[in-house]
């Protein structure tokens, strides 16, 4: 991909709005097209080209840099080779799995506290509740900050 992801999405949305939707027949089909726009807006706020996609390019650059560095002394005055040391980057899937495992542990603790509230030390339970509440607030606030404006009206009517 040679365009930025946000610009690509903006272009897709503009094409849908200006070229596709005016020529669609039926409220349902137009509503679906507005759904596409909404989802593209949502992707725009959270997505980037993947670590896997960029990581392979860095590894290739690394290999080239090592080969070119070995040759550099024999090419006086030539621009220096790229200084790349490709680091292993976690994939989005690995990060998502880590988050889900953490959330599962929090959920299990919430369920346990619900069942043992009466027998556990009240002050400790209150502290645990507060820590969980702070985590939930932060998690949800971030999700909302990175959410697009809903378009249910347009999707239901098939018009804006």
């Amino acid at each position: 991909m040679n365009t930025s992801l946000p610009r690509l999405i903006d272009g897709m949305i503009a094409t849908l709005r200006q070229e596709v939707i005016p020529n669609l027949q039926g409220d349902f089909a137009r509503g679906q097209a507005y759904g596409l726009i909404y989802m593209l807006n949502s992707i725009r706020l959270r997505a980037s080209w993947s670590n896997e996609f960029l990581g392979e390019q860095l590894r290739a650059l690394d290999e080239a840099a090592q080969a070119l560095s070995a040759l550099a002394p024999q090419l006086p005055g030539a621009p220096p080779p790229p200084a790349i040391v490709a680091r292993p980057l976690p994939s989005a899937a690995e990060l998502e799995a880590q988050r889900d495992a953490g959330d599962k542990a929090i959920c299990d603790l919430i369920d346990w506290l619900g069942a043992h509230r009466a027998s556990a030390p009240a002050a400790v339970v209150a502290e645990a509740d507060a820590a969980i509440a702070r985590y939930i607030q932060r998690q949800l606030k971030w999700e909302l900050t990175t959410s697009a404006k809903p378009m249910f009206e347009e999707m239901s009517r098939g018009s804006d």
Partner: peptide, 19 residues
């Protein structure tokens, strides 16, 4: 149906309202 992923985006806002 594109309304399905659109609805799915509303999980967090509703959970925030519960909170």
């Amino acid at each position: 149906d594109m309304r399905m992923p659109a609805m799915a985006t509303q999980i967090a806002p509703v959970l925030r309202q519960i909170e």
